[in-house]
Amino acid sequence: MTEHYFSNSPETAHERAQFTFELKGKKFIFNTDSHVFSKNTIDFGSRVLIDAFDDSELPEGALLDVGCGYGPMGLSLAYSTGRFVEMVDVNERALGLAKENAAANGIEQVDIHVSSIYEVTNQESYAGIVSNPPIRAGKQVVHGILEGAYPLLKEGGSLTVVIQKKQGAPSAQKKMAEVFGNCEIVTKEKGYLILRSVKEA
């Protein structure tokens, strides 16, 4: 069986690595391993989303990072916003690394745990949900992330995702507009689109 970065318990041999990367003005240390998404550097899509994310108009409350991997989005947004961030993924190896990376970078206001999309969430509602969805897991999973966000968001809260144009951004944009009644392209860079929908009152 081929294992993917969205496998629950990868059994592939470990190939641990470490690198530093500046996000939101802080130099982060990231520990990574085989069988996690974008092992050798922060992937471009996540970087574009992190740069584009602005919480200034969001209500008070926590953020949720769906498919957090080893933690670059959730940890950098916890640092830059000062908000509590819940971080979920199906890949237990990635989650172990995310916990290590939170400790290594002194980020304490996080809750990192296993969940298949929104199966296990520990807050009643969120001010914002972010995701770099696992495109290779298929459209059903990606659209599950987009649809499932709506009931979990506070009024005025937003869902922000990054998707490549050639990997389904137009269909994601359409789905978000359907679910939320709005969808804005926040930024476009090298074929990556940052899409944001707001839960209106």
Rank of each mutant, 00 (worst) to 15 (best):
F84Q: 11
G148L: 11
A102W: 04
V48R: 07
V66R: 02
G67T: 00
I117T: 13
A104I: 07
C68I: 04
R93S: 02
E189I: 03
E3A: 04
N8R: 15
V85N: 06
S38N: 15
G69V: 02
G144I: 08
M1Y: 12
V198K: 12
S76R: 04
I129K: 01
T160A: 11
L63V: 04
L95H: 01
L159I: 13
G82K: 05
V142C: 06
A78M: 02
K188N: 08
E86C: 05
N101R: 01
A98I: 05
V90E: 08
N40A: 10
I50V: 14
I42G: 03
G45F: 00
S7W: 00
S46H: 11
S76A: 13
E22D: 14
L152P: 13
S46D: 11
E124K: 07
M176T: 14
T187Q: 13
S115T: 08
Q123E: 10
I42A: 01
S125W: 00
F180I: 11
L152T: 12
V161P: 09
D51P: 00
G157T: 12
K27P: 00
Y192R: 01
G168I: 13
A102H: 08
Y126K: 06
A201W: 09
L58N: 05
E119W: 06
K99C: 14
G82R: 05
T41R: 11
M176K: 09
L23C: 05
C183E: 07
G157L: 07
G61Q: 00
H35S: 12
A201H: 15
L97F: 11
T2D: 10
R83P: 09
G148A: 10
Q109E: 14
V88P: 05
V48M: 09
E11T: 15
A127Q: 00
I117L: 09
S115L: 13
L77H: 12
E200D: 10
S46C: 09
P133D: 12
E155N: 15
A52G: 08
K165E: 15
N182A: 13
M1Q: 11
L146R: 04
S9F: 00
I145W: 05
G144P: 03
I29V: 15
G128W: 05
N91T: 00
V198E: 13
Y150R: 11
G138M: 05
L75E: 04
I42H: 04
F44R: 10
H35A: 15
L95Y: 03
E15H: 12
K99T: 14
D89F: 04
D43F: 03
E119R: 04
V130H: 01
L23W: 07
E60W: 00
V142H: 03
N31A: 14
F30K: 02
K24I: 03
L152Q: 13
K175G: 08
T12G: 10
E3V: 09
I194L: 03
A94K: 06
N31T: 13
R196V: 10
I163Q: 14
F30G: 06
F6K: 05
Q173L: 14
V36K: 09
V36G: 02
K99M: 09
D54W: 02
I129W: 06
